[in-house]
Design a protein around this nucleic acid. Structure first.
Lengths: 203, 203
DNA sequence: ATCCTATTTAATAACCTTATTAATAACTAA
DNA sequence: TTAGTTATTAATAAGGTTATTAAATAGGAT
């Protein structure tokens, strides 16, 4: 039972509850009840509910954006890079299906949280945006791609990929299929989203 | 001051606060404070916070899906119908930019709320789905459209259009432009989304 | 065993919540 | 004016929230 430290157990339980119900609907009492410990133990280890949450939020924001951090093979065409990015993006989301809503929700209820996300995104952009922008400019100039911006490409990708997971609770109710078929449908949607994204870039 | 009835004032204030902060982060005390009346007046008129909320939620769910209820000209090609739907959809969203998150959030925190939305969607589908499905089948058969489903078309449309508004708080931070330029960008995005949607249907 | 430290619990202060009750105030009709 | 509604407020019950304090317990080193 205590092969995992209490601190770790609290952290993991808090993670689960925060992601499921959000910051404001998760009380430290709930977490303690779930862990099976005294409520004050949470303050003992993490000082405050807010601090505990911040730890988790940062971590999850990183996971949420992880797919965009992974380096891309340098010598493949831009189109291929975008395909890889979109597929990776969708993959990370399938493995963390609850994150899109969680992140969006917490930013919405407390705009301060945006700073964490902003830092991560800015960081990523500094890494990849210069070279991608250059490649994009070339593709456009050579007439191999539509005149567009990295911003638009990311927005399309994010909208298509995140959409599936945000609407999941609603969609589930309109697709009366067993869970494993739903997973197949999900993978198909990754393909379809990538297809649409690339299509949108054609000149 | 009391040219509007107290009941109406409470309703409108509750509407605003609920949409901004959600059900759980809006207390009846907050509403009363904002209205400038006693907290128990809210229960006097609406019996409970829950009932007050339900009234508002139903109304807003209808608005949220209103664009899909508007009838389509019967004799235009399916492609044109889809274009009109997408543009209308985006338009309703721009006029109710906070609704996508509001609806999604409330469904998430209380899945019971899904029933309201489900009823409305089922209703809409019964109205439009048979004829659209027939037209779609024909277009596919004649090789004028890719083999797809109404479900996928709606999912793509919703993802692209709703995405813009869900990410708005984040996007605003990365576009350092004045608000009126932002509005222009928004309209452009409607065009772009429609373009992508129709592109995705080409054979 | 004892002391020391780290962990855990119990008790509680100082809030904030919603719904109910009873007491006023305002208005309306006879 | 008076009686009867309707609208509004004050007071409060019953519960929930987080953070703090002090007390209890456990484990290890001496």
């Amino acid at each position: 039972m205590s092969d995992k430290s209490m601190e770790q157990t609290i952290l993991e339980t808090a993670e689960r509850l925060f992601i499921d119900r959000g910051f404001s609907l998760t009380s430290t009492t709930d977490i303690a009840k779930e862990v099976g410990c005294n409520q004050s133990l949470i303050n003992y280890y993490f000082r405050s509910k807010e601090k505990l949450f911040q730890t988790i939020f940062k971590k999850k924001a990183l996971v949420f954006l992880a797919s965009l951090r992974e380096p891309l093979e340098a010598h493949i065409p831009l189109q291929e890079k975008i395909r890889v990015m979109s597929e990776r993006h969708f993959m990370t989301l399938s493995e963390n299906a609850k994150l899109p809503f969680f992140i969006l929700n917490e930013i919405h209820t407390n705009p301060e949280r945006l700073n964490v996300v902003k830092t991560i995104i800015t960081d990523i952009l500094q890494q990849i945006s210069p070279s991608l922008n250059e490649e994009l400019a070339l593709e456009i100039q050579e007439g191999r791609m539509r005149n567009t911006t990295l911003f638009e490409i990311f927005l399309t990708m994010a909208s298509l990929n995140i959409g599936v997971f945000l609407f999941h609770p609603v969609l589930k109710n309109f697709i009366n299929k067993p869970n494993d078929e739903l997973r197949t449908l999900l993978l198909q949607r990754s393909q379809e989203n990538t297809r649409i994204l690339l299509l949108s870039l054609e000149p």
